[in-house]
Nucleic acid binder design. Structure first.
Length: 216
DNA sequence: GAGGAGATCGTCT
DNA sequence: GACGATCTCCTCT
């Protein structure tokens, strides 16, 4: 895989509102291979999306929006392209992006990133020691899971929930550097107890940075 | 490498 | 008061 540099990330155009103004399945599939970028002062942190899950809004019993609008999930009922960040299991944040036309409350859960730029800083955010890891086996622990990627990019509810990914002033955005995923695999979603057989989890086939053991 | 259980707290009922 | 779109550590094989 060609090396992605800071210059590449800086030059890659941001994804616009229209990208997210589609159904969750389409957005989840097309997000694979895109870059998720965080600006921390003068530093850039970026990872390539290799795993995402689609949640279909009010029609999906596994979705947070299924039981209607609450203060927590209000972002999902707003315009597409906004960050929905929630706290789970007492110690983890999960990062979603709202999609579908406004009011339908669909979203895509970001489940794993392949670290691309600012790798050392992301590892530090996760308390991982890359310097003491000559085989780089820790690389895939940086962002291979919803809680992990949120921690690596320092995404929290207080700081980022409701943030507009498509605003030119945002310090958190998606970018397209032209990379295309060769193969997209679909599996059932992870950790859900409703609609468990729907193949709404999408992964970059063969990529070692996806979460869990079901890599395909 | 695989599997089980605890941690820990916001959200909803 | 119960539960959860998870992670990590520990034990066993």
């Amino acid at each position: 895989m060609p090396t992605t540099t800071i210059a590449t990330v800086r030059a890659a155009p941001r994804l616009s509102r229209g990208f997210f103004n589609r159904d969750a399945v389409t957005v989840a599939r097309e997000l694979l291979g895109k870059l998720l970028v965080r600006r921390e002062g003068s530093q850039l942190l970026a990872g390539r999306v290799v795993e995402a899950e689609a949640y279909l809004g009010a029609a999906d019993p596994a979705a947070h929006a299924y039981n209607g609008r609450t203060p927590r999930n209000a972002v999902l009922f707003g315009p597409p392209g906004h960050a929905y960040v929630y706290f789970i299991y007492g110690n983890h944040y999960c990062t979603n992006v709202s999609c579908m036309p406004e009011g339908d409350a669909g979203c895509v859960l970001l489940r794993a990133l392949e670290p691309v730029v600012g790798i050392a800083a992301m590892a530090a955010n996760r308390d991982l020691e890359l310097a003491a890891d000559p085989t780089h086996s820790q690389l895939r622990n940086i962002a291979s899971g919803p809680g992990r990627l949120s921690e690596a990019l320092r995404i929290t509810r207080d700081r980022d929930n409701g943030k507009d990914f498509t605003s030119p002033r945002s310090d958190l955005w998606f970018a397209d550097d032209g990379h295309r995923v060769a193969e997209i695999a679909a599996t059932p979603r992870i950790g859900v107890n409703q609609a468990v057989h729907e193949p709404l989890r999408f992964l970059a086939g063969g990529n070692p940075y996806v979460s869990g053991s079901r890599k395909l």
